[in-house]
Amino acid sequence: MALPADFTLVEQDGRPTAVLSGDWTARGLFDAGIRLADALEKTETPVFDLVGINRCDTAGAYAILRAAGDRLKPEDVKARREVLRLLELVFAAIQVQPEPTVRPGGVRALLERIGRGVFGLFADGYGTLVFLGHLLSALARSTVDPRRIRWAPVIALCERAGLDAMPIVATTTFFIGAVVALLGANMLTDFGAQVYSVELIGISVMREFNILITAILLAGRSASSFAAEIGSMKMNQEIDAMQVMGVDPYEALVLPRFAALLFTIPLLTFVATIAGLVGGAIVVWIVLDLSPTFFLQRIVDYVGATHFWVGLSKAPVMAAVIAAIGCRQGMEVGQDVEALGRRVTAAVVHAIFAIILIDAVFALIYMELDI
């Protein structure tokens, strides 16, 4: 039965003695430490009799030391060996003074920050190469043995990343095509060349805006989703459990997402192209009074399908980059929610940056090839 902490002050051998009893623990302490400190306030050299203590933990030992203050001397303490050892440990712990953190300032702080940034850049590059190696190994194993591919999650992810994204992709590119048509009509009318608005819409939508808008939307939609899903599994140690059971997380989690985006981005690019051309055709019809039949015929005669295939050729690269960045950031999540938030944000930012960079590289390549 637990007894509350208590004490009595008596005279033994002509010296005031504090006789402690009960459980000097976090549960049984209550206000005994405060009462003991008040009772010993005017006592110079008391003796502490701790033999009657039933149980004692660090909370009780700290209360005794705080009440005794500087008046506690080892030779004036009577207690069992384990209680004495506990008092020594707590006393040593409370004597440790925290060392103030001196933050460097000026040029040194700037150089340290730059150094950490460079080190983080190389560490991030190394982690990317490691992730790419695991992904290529899983892809090679699945290519050699297609039975290893988990088609059920691939189909489910295709629906989530592809079919569910069609409305937002179509709506966005519709208004992008309408805005391009409106700007082209207003500017080209001043030169009497408003008919060339059709070529402007066709080339910009079919060559650039279809794949660029689709990829950016999927970067914010799918890359963040992949990072959050895999990251939450990493936090809950589900990925560690998969590895213990002999399941490769790259085959079970990363490869289906990689394949899903690879299958769906060309379809979404086609939908974006149609929606952008429709938006441009409607604006041209309303503003310039050019019929949709004329618009379509001029697209066929003067724009052609080459620009569409140029835009579509970027789709597999964009899909691979978005899926890889999202999954890789999810794999890097630590054990706290803050790390999950940072990685999800990093997935979106890195994916959008990579998309714009890849689009610029493709533009330079096709410009050199005169396509």
Rank of each mutant, 00 (worst) to 15 (best):
M233D: 03
N236H: 06
V244R: 04
E238C: 05
I211M: 01
S232P: 12
I203L: 05
S222K: 07
L212E: 06
S204R: 09
E208A: 04
V247Q: 03
D240Y: 05
N210M: 15
I213P: 03
R221L: 03
E208G: 07
G246R: 01
R221E: 06
F226K: 04
L218T: 01
S222N: 08
S224K: 07
G220D: 10
V247D: 01
A241I: 02
A223T: 12
A228R: 02
E251M: 03
I211C: 01
D248F: 01
M233R: 14
A219V: 14
E251R: 02
I203Q: 07
T214I: 01
Q243K: 13
I211V: 13
F209V: 10
N210D: 09
A228K: 10
M242Q: 10
D248A: 02
M245D: 14
I203H: 07
T214C: 11
F209L: 15
S222G: 12
A227Q: 09
A219M: 04
D248W: 02
L218I: 00
A219K: 00
Q243G: 10
E229P: 05
L217R: 13
M245C: 14
A215T: 13
E208T: 12
Q243A: 12
E229W: 07
V244T: 15
I203C: 09
A219S: 15
A228I: 00
D248N: 13
V244P: 11
R221H: 14
I213G: 00
N210E: 08
L212K: 09
A215C: 08
V244Y: 10
Y250T: 12
V247E: 00
K234Y: 02
F209H: 10
G220Q: 07
S204C: 08
F209T: 06
S232F: 03
M242E: 03
A227P: 13
L217M: 11
S232V: 07
G202I: 08
E238P: 06
A227F: 13
I203M: 03
V247S: 02
V205C: 09
Y250H: 15
V247R: 01
F209R: 11
A228N: 09
A241G: 06
E229K: 14
E208C: 04
S224F: 08
E208M: 08
V247P: 00
I239V: 15
I239T: 05
L212M: 12
A228L: 10
M206D: 01
K234L: 01
G231Q: 05
I213H: 03
A223F: 03
S225H: 03
S224N: 08
F226Q: 13
N236F: 02
I230C: 14
G246N: 10
I239K: 10
I203P: 11
S224L: 05
A223K: 00
A223Q: 06
G246H: 06
A215K: 05
I213Y: 00
A228E: 05
G220F: 07
M233L: 13
A219D: 12
D240S: 12
R221Y: 11
K234A: 06
I213K: 02
M235S: 04
S222Q: 08
G220N: 07
V247F: 04
A219R: 00
